[in-house]
């Protein structure tokens, strides 16, 4: 007796009806595609060290760095401590001057390697997306980005 033959010498072929299986698969695939998340959601840490090992030292850092976002895409780097300085960085067209900000901060990072965090604050009307973008730019230089201005 070969496969597909009924016992008792009946030569009739038995075909599995695949049409309902296909129907079920189509419905399942449609459901999976509809419920699939095409956006990848991530989280930015606004409180503690965001990358690498967090500092366990309780010593006061030689300088405190603060970035303040102003209206019209102007920003300020406020340095206090051993160095007291305010650097104003004007907007680059309709964008923030992140390149100049990064250059200045990297110089401070080189001079004061123990400084591991920077405080970010903004004017009341500055949009949240600009704050997040600045946080992203700062995280490339400093492991800790703290939100300030309270």
């Amino acid at each position: 007796m070969s496969v597909g033959q009924l016992p008792g010498g009946n030569d009739q072929d038995v075909d599995l009806n695949l049409a309902p299986i296909i129907d079920a698969l189509v419905v399942l695939i449609s459901f999976m595609l509809a419920s699939a998340a095409f956006l990848s959601i991530g989280f930015l840490d606004a409180g503690i060290s965001a990358g690498g090992a967090s500092s366990t030292s309780t010593a006061k850092p030689p300088i405190t760095l603060g970035i303040h976002l102003q209206s019209k895409h102007n920003l300020e780097i406020r340095v206090t401590g051993k160095v007291n300085k305010t650097i104003s960085i004007s907007a680059v067209g309709e964008n923030w001057g992140y390149d100049r900000m990064s250059q200045s901060l990297q110089a401070y990072r080189k001079d004061f390697p123990t400084v591991g965090a920077v405080t970010l604050s903004a004017d009341a009307q500055v949009e949240y997306r600009d704050v997040v973008k600045t946080m992203e730019a700062l995280r490339k230089i400093f492991p800790g980005v703290l939100l300030g201005g309270f």
Binding site: L39, G42, A46, V132, M135
Partner: peptide
Amino acid sequence: YTDFKLAVVQNQ
């Protein structure tokens, strides 16, 4: 609540 996590969309 002092440990803030900001939800963002990752651009890939």
